[in-house]
């Protein structure tokens, strides 16, 4: 049994320790907001936060998050920064197909928690680790800037 906190609540899962967090979330716990994209930590669709730092859930063994705080897209709107990012996403109508967007939002929140006043270059650098096949990058960039203003 592996225990951790999931979105602020205690969570126990009875799975092998090397099971990727992504599969634990989607198959064991039933939280499907975190997406499978590339499966090799390159696209960012599976981004979650572990103790506030972003991690690629597809390559993160669940044993490595024992005793830690795991936050997913389902709860990211529970705090000020997450809510500001979600609001900006809606204002800028960022989403096209939407598949990558939970990862994009998680990455944007991680950026704004680390850097409340990111420059354009900071945004480009941080968000470049999350791929969007619809090419919504310009709207993502604008929404991150807008969210930064909202929490300033």
């Amino acid at each position: 049994m592996i225990s951790f906190r999931l979105n602020g609540k205690p969570q126990d899962v009875d799975v092998p320790g090397d099971t990727p967090v992504l599969w634990v979330l989607r198959d064991t716990v039933g939280l499907t907001g975190t997406k499978f994209g590339c499966g090799i930590a390159v696209c960012g669709a599976c981004t979650v936060h572990v103790d506030g730092r972003q991690r690629r859930a597809c390559v993160t063994p669940v044993s490595s998050i024992a005793g830690r705080e795991l936050t997913t897209i389902e709860a990211i709107g529970d705090d000020k920064v997450g809510r500001a990012v979600q609001d900006a996403w809606v204002r800028h109508d960022v989403v096209q197909c939407g598949y990558c967007q939970s990862g994009q939002v998680m990455a944007a929140v991680a950026l704004l928690k680390a850097n409340k006043r990111p420059t354009d270059a900071d945004i480009d650098r941080a968000m470049s680790a999350n791929l969007c096949r619809c090419g919504t990058y310009a709207r993502i960039h604008a929404a991150v800037k807008d969210a930064a203003k909202a929490i300033a």
Partner: peptide, 19 residues
């Protein structure tokens, strides 16, 4: 932060190429 090594580099090699 927000791009730490641990963001993408986990505790073990992936069995898949390019990870």
């Amino acid at each position: 932060a927000p791009l730490n090594c641990a963001t993408c580099h986990s505790t073990q090699n992936s069995p898949l190429a390019h990870a």
